[in-house]
Amino acid sequence: MVVLSINPLVNPDPGLFIWSAIAFIILLIVLRKMAWAPITEALAERENFIEDSLSKAEAAKQEMASLISENDALLKQTRAERDQILAEARKVKEQMIIDAKEIAQKEGARMIELARVEINNQKAIAMADVKNQVATLSLQIAEKVLRKQFEDQQKQDELVSQLLKEVKL
């Protein structure tokens, strides 16, 4: 201790050394249990909480964004579907009109055809009737004419002879 005893300032006092060691160790043990443990724990907890909250907020933001984009997509899809449905409806309508027209045309044609056939039939019947009538009338006329013609004998003979002349054997 010769070197250290140059000045009382640099000569460590054993009493103070022992007291300070005891005090410091007690301070360390007590503070460790009473203060540092709860403080560091609370600090870590709060930091975790803040970090957690931040990450949660970030997640919520992302979810929001994804929700918005999802909504957009849904809206777009719905719009597209609506457009498609409308287009289809239009097409169906047009088709229906076309079909209806076609059917109407066909039906008309058929009915016209039927009418024509009927008319023809009726015409034929009427013609046949007229022919009969004409024939009957002609016969009656002919009869009357003939009767008149053949009232006189001479004329009959003349005719016969003429006919006979006409007939060439």
Partner: peptide, 13 residues
């Protein structure tokens, strides 16, 4: 130190 950090620790609790 004990008083100060006792108070501080109480604050955290």
């Amino acid at each position: 130190l004990l008083i100060i950090f006792g108070t501080v620790a109480k604050g955290y609790r």
